[in-house]
């Protein structure tokens, strides 16, 4: 099995053109309490699919009793929402006044030339989407370009090509060490206290954590990134989005039992001991990123 294929920090984005009504229903369910939360529902759908699929809007309309016209009106009113599928990498070039006088139009022209698309379009291979914004509030740093949430300041025309190459490879590996919220931790089984560390396989450039997982029909391993704050995982077999799995220690073969329920999706959360004292709990639902770190 090709291991790299399963590793993706963006694996929360579902395959294009596959709108499952149960996914939408799950999102609607979590918003049941706050009536009038149309924008947060749309935000969540957009984070799931990368855009707002027509089918999804129809389901939202049907379930919430709002008319499709109103939902469509909101979806087209805010620039944040997109009704077209976007590329894997989102490039946002600032064209605000300060960036403009510092040469942002030339940067946009260079981006357009390199990607052979116009602003607002997506490359045919669905890799890049180029957008312009009117101000990012970082005027002193202009011209500013944001790629996949990473800000690049004082961008020169000559730097554009390098940026695009980096973007294609992903920025995740460049960031570790710089970002203080992301740091490596070593965890072990709460029963036998054996470390889950697996030195034979690296994720995010660090040795990964290997745990066995079991569903109703299948068993296999899951490799998690040891970086706290990174959601990169690799699995032996395909675990469908939203499925809850059982975690089993590879050393003592005992199942790791849940001690609490996930505050976001309600699935059981399993505890693991952190080297140096403390407990980290992670949600057992595939795709749910909820986790809790209790340091003693």
């Amino acid at each position: 099995m090709e291991q790299n294929a399963a590793i993706s920090s963006k694996d929360n984005i579902c395959a294009e053109g596959k709108v499952e009504s149960k996914d939408i229903l799950r999102i609607l369910e979590s918003h049941n309490k706050d009536r009038g939360g149309l924008i947060s529902i749309l935000e969540e759908i957009q984070s799931e699919y990368g855009y707002l699929p027509e089918e999804a809007l129809r389901i939202v309309s049907e379930r919430t009793g709002r008319s499709l016209v109103d939902i469509y009106g909101v979806a087209t009113f805010y620039r944040f929402f997109s009704l077209q599928a976007k590329g894997k990498h989102l490039i946002c070039a600032c064209l605000g006044t300060a960036c403009h006088v510092r040469g942002a139009p030339r940067i946009v022209a260079e981006l357009e030339q390199q990607l052979t698309i116009k602003a607002g379009q997506t490359t045919p291979d669905k890799e890049f989407t180029l957008e312009t914004v009117n101000c990012l509030g970082a005027c002193a740093l202009g011209p500013v370009v944001v790629i996949d949430g990473h800000y690049f300041s004082k961008v020169r025309k000559s730097k554009v090509k390098q940026l695009l190459e980096q973007a294609g490879e992903g920025f995740d590996k460049f960031d570790i060490g710089k970002d203080e919220r992301i740091f490596p931790i070593e965890v072990s089984c709460p029963h036998c206290n054996h470390s889950f560390k697996d030195k034979t396989f690296a994720i995010d450039g660090y040795p990964c954590l290997k745990i066995n997982v079991a569903t109703d029909h299948q068993q296999g391993w899951i490799r998690l990134s040891c970086l706290y704050g990174s959601y990169s995982v690799s699995t032996e077999f395909e675990i469908p989005e939203g499925m809850v799995v059982n975690f089993i220690c590879p050393h003592c073969n005992s199942e790791i039992h849940s001690t609490s329920d996930c505050s976001q999706c309600g699935a059981p959360m399993i505890p693991m001991l952190v080297d140096g004292g403390g407990i980290v709990s992670i949600c057992t639902r595939r795709g749910c990123k909820n986790h809790m770190l209790d340091l003693v």
Binding site: V69, G73, T76, F77
Partner: peptide, 17 residues
């Protein structure tokens, strides 16, 4: 409620979703 406002600013228009 078949038609409604869409878009914003100079792109605002009326029509069906």
């Amino acid at each position: 409620k078949a038609i409604g406002f869409r878009g914003r600013g100079e792109n605002r228009s009326i029509g069906t979703p």
